[in-house]
Write a protein that binds this DNA or RNA. Sequence first.
DNA 1: GAGGTCCATGAAGATTTCTTAAGGCAACCG
DNA 2: CGGTTGCCTTAAGAAATCTTCATGGACCTC
Lengths: 222, 222
Amino acid sequence: MMRKHILIVEDDHDINRFLTLELEEAGFQVSSYGTGISGLSAVREDTPDLVVLDLGLPDLNGAEIARRIRHTDDTPIIILTAADDVGTKVEMLNAGADDYLAKPFHSDELIARINVQLRKRNGAMVRKVGELSLDASRRQAFWGEEEIRLSPREFDLLLYLCSQPGRVYSRQEIESNVWGEELPPSSNVVDVHIANIRSKLRDAGGYGVIRTVRGVGYAVKG
Amino acid sequence: MMRKHILIVEDDHDINRFLTLELEEAGFQVSSYGTGISGLSAVREDTPDLVVLDLGLPDLNGAEIARRIRHTDDTPIIILTAADDVGTKVEMLNAGADDYLAKPFHSDELIARINVQLRKRNGAMVRKVGELSLDASRRQAFWGEEEIRLSPREFDLLLYLCSQPGRVYSRQEIESNVWGEELPPSSNVVDVHIANIRSKLRDAGGYGVIRTVRGVGYAVKG
DNA sequence: GAGGTCCATGAAGATTTCTTAAGGCAACCG
DNA sequence: CGGTTGCCTTAAGAAATCTTCATGGACCTC
């Protein structure tokens, strides 16, 4: 497993340095920023696995940052606060924070909580479209409760179509995203795979899940 | 098997029962008590590996219990509190608590913290997936009560697969995490080790524990 | 050094998956 | 209505992947 990438946004230089060392010690890849602005743009660029965010930043309110991150992204966020009161906690959680930790804290505790969040997230790589659910990390597909056994390609193809339910994907797009290479122009591989997936969906009770758009491509019913 | 022994002292019967089940599920041996007095004497007799202690007991103050335990013993103590304020926390830590957790909490978090404490003491870390338990510090594997003798590589590999039960790990991931280096692309070491582990699991009665996901990798049933 | 365990390799065999190709069906258009 | 195009189905061979087995070497223990 790739090391998890943690992004720290904390203006106090000592704490920042301390956290960086502790988290690196714990096996994470760490990058750290001192201001809300720089941190926020780094979240966009680095796409870290988790953000540790100090509440008392000089430029931007922590809650505001959390909200902005949540707006485009669902990276887990753990908030660090100096004050430990219920009101702040509620506000933070409403702003989209996943967990919250009052200073002073043990780095062990922070690490434990980071792991809790990362575990949660990994378990939650599930995409649901109506009755259909695709669990990417387990590579399992379900229609309701019933498992649908898909081959690797079939799974990738269906997962791709589900990445934006309703949107139509051209063969070209499908080929380059699922196959990753150019296929002979005469090939009807995509069609065949679609047919096979449909057949398996039908067996499980799913009709009309994949819509074909003549002259364009395919889409899952959104 | 030398499962770690957790002692719970908690007067709320529902929480008590819930914690017992969750911790047993996580592979610990659990005994639980409803009052400070009974819990305190049980600590003396059972010499548990860790104590989970509710702060709001009817007979004895939680801090008082922590102090008394500390007086004769240095079993790790994790305190559960209803209120989450700094004063209480400081008092608890001064009384000898090792960690502290405010209700409501996720059992996952409690388990993580328990493991943190146990690891601090003697490096114990038990992972349980169905009938299978792996004790990382002793490097022993069990199917139910029966020990499975695994070679070092086999143990590491199985432990890695169990780090997120259900999730599929690619050969690549396995190689870099268990072997720590790139193996010649022609190598089928991973496969062979998987086969050997399966064979040993079968001997102990475990069938279908490791699922192979064609074209992707392997996963333990979760 | 003898015996053991563990690890890596290669190759055969079994299994699943992928692709191709050909014929049929359905929609669109004059 | 007939031609054209695009899509669906099916089946079979090709390709890729997984399992198993046998072998040899490295290492440790006695």
